[in-house]
Design a protein around this nucleic acid. Structure first.
Lengths: 131, 131
DNA sequence: GTATGTACTTCCATAAAAGTAAGTACAATT
DNA sequence: AATTGTACTTACTTTTATGGAAGTACATAC
């Protein structure tokens, strides 16, 4: 697989003078486009790899796995694999991961009030927003 | 200047089937590494270009301006320029931008409770977290 | 013995983001 | 006439992210 770069810009910033900005701290872990979306889709609970894939139709397998691995490495998601064939692997949020709910929730609320056209769609999504 | 690409992956996703995810909607606007950091630094109020640069020491001028332009184009920040020489330009959050405060605040709180070593530094930053 | 399902992995190509360094305008100051 | 300050621009390079497509393991079903 594509190695998780240990020296991305994001990683490097960990050790610079700006590391005392809490928002930076968060972006180092969930920055980028896909991670919040993946986390959002795990808020509803444990999902198999395939289910996750289906719930995010536009992500490629490579991206999905790569980010899942990174999220796992950062302790935000927990991977569980049953030793069976064909494989049975589930992903779920860790405690740390679940604590991101307020962040994702605040995002969703902002989307609802600033989306114009899509507001109604978003509102529907909000109805079953996991507590 | 480097043109703001109109067809980035992020932009394209706007029109795909996944566009009914509110978190995606948010990431389309503030996704990436720098934007939340810039917005965070504008929460404390109007700032001149130079002040902003100083408060985010690791950002390059190119990145700062590029993102400011995009944020302005998305209606999240307001640019005001006095017709003087040398230039006097300020940036501030728009209403829409200010409404991102809960998102940024939730991020900051998560950072405080999940940071281990840097917790104390973050707490300090939180003290003057704008209301 | 061929096909199926699941969760990946690998290689190669492209696109986007970010970094580097130098340059610009122009009034006011020295 | 040269220097300063501010807010940018521009051209070029490097790094990182993403895409696409094919391949792998292996128990079970057909």
């Amino acid at each position: 697989m594509t190695a998780i770069k240990e020296t991305s810009v994001i990683q490097e910033n960990k050790s610079n003078a700006f590391s005392n900005c809490p928002v930076t701290f968060v972006m180092e872990r969930i920055g980028g486009y896909w991670k919040p979306i993946i986390l959002f889709n795990l808020l509803t609970g444990t999902k198999r790899y395939n289910e996750l894939k289906k719930s995010i139709p536009t992500i490629t397998e490579k991206m999905l796995i790569q980010h899942l691995k990174q999220l796992e490495a950062d302790g935000l998601v927990i991977r569980k694999a049953k030793p069976v064939v064909p494989p049975f692997v589930t992903y779920q949020l860790s405690k740390k991961g679940k604590e991101l709910r307020p962040v994702l929730y605040a995002m969703a609320e902002w989307a609802v009030s600033n989306s114009g056209q899509q507001t109604e769609q978003f509102k529907k999504q909000m109805e079953d927003f996991p507590k």
